[in-house]
Simulated scan of single mutants.
Amino acid sequence: MSISAPRTGPRPPADRRAFVRTTLDLGDVLLRPWGREAAESDTVLDGLVAAAADPMVALWNPFPATDRSEALAWLDSRDAGWDRGAGASFAVLTATDGTLLGSVTLRWVDRADGLAMIGYWIQPAARGRGVATRATAAVTDWAFRTADARRIEIAHAVGNEASCRVAHRCGYLPEGTLRDSHRFGDGAYHDEHLHARLATDPQPAAGVHVDMPGP
């Protein structure tokens, strides 16, 4: 994996736990910071609208993007997170033509303590190819190496078994069940499985591909 920083854009807060806009190159897949620059591509905007309407994304990881204007507002919120160094939201794109495959978002839960949380969603056409696992693992490693993250958590609905598999494959160990923890896209509160990975944990085995129907 190679890492490159953009040449332009707002400078984040100068502290060791700031997420700094970076592109992660996985070869056939690129992870690029979400933000207003993505609005230059109608294809990406339309991809966001399509993803928000997908039943699995709408259930397990809903976000407001029923049209291009809402997608733009969502991109503005991603930009704001990067500007503060508090959130790192990546578009997962094909390296060849920039097709939108999904998204990975990392945010501080307790910045002073080095505690963060990560989440992800994948477009239907990209599922079953290990994209979520590779992207999540790459962002996890990047946060440990460059932002002094101490602990990163994944919380997913108990019913979202695919997300659970991704967490395991990325080295996030199960730590228990959170009862009625989060209200999901169906309007109901669901129990969640909590997984976590520490900066001191060993690297998980590489090269694992999983089916990824959600979130």
Rank of each mutant, 00 (worst) to 15 (best):
R32S: 12
P33S: 15
W34K: 04
R36I: 14
R36E: 10
R36G: 09
A38F: 09
A38Y: 06
A38W: 08
S41Y: 07
D42H: 05
L45I: 04
G47F: 00
A52C: 10
D54C: 15
P55R: 11
M56L: 08
V57W: 06
A58W: 09
L59F: 05
L59E: 07
W60A: 06
N61H: 09
P62I: 02
P62V: 02
F63W: 14
P64A: 06
P64F: 04
T66G: 15
T66Q: 12
A71W: 06
L72M: 11
A73L: 14
W74N: 05
S77A: 15
R78L: 10
G81C: 15
G81R: 14
G85N: 07
G87P: 07
G87R: 14
G87Y: 14
A88Q: 13
T94W: 08
D97Y: 08
G98W: 09
T99N: 01
L101P: 02
G102Q: 03
S103E: 01
V104R: 00
R107E: 13
W108T: 13
V109E: 12
R111S: 11
A112M: 08
A112Q: 06
A112S: 07
D113S: 14
D113K: 11
L115K: 07
L115D: 14
L115F: 12
A116R: 09
A116E: 09
A116D: 04
M117E: 08
M117C: 04
I118S: 05
W121Q: 05
Q123C: 08
P124Y: 14
A125E: 12
R127A: 03
G128Q: 05
G128V: 07
G128W: 00
R129Q: 11
V131H: 02
A132R: 01
A132T: 03
T133W: 02
T133R: 04
T133P: 01
R134L: 01
A135F: 01
T140I: 00
W142E: 07
A143Q: 12
A143C: 08
A143E: 04
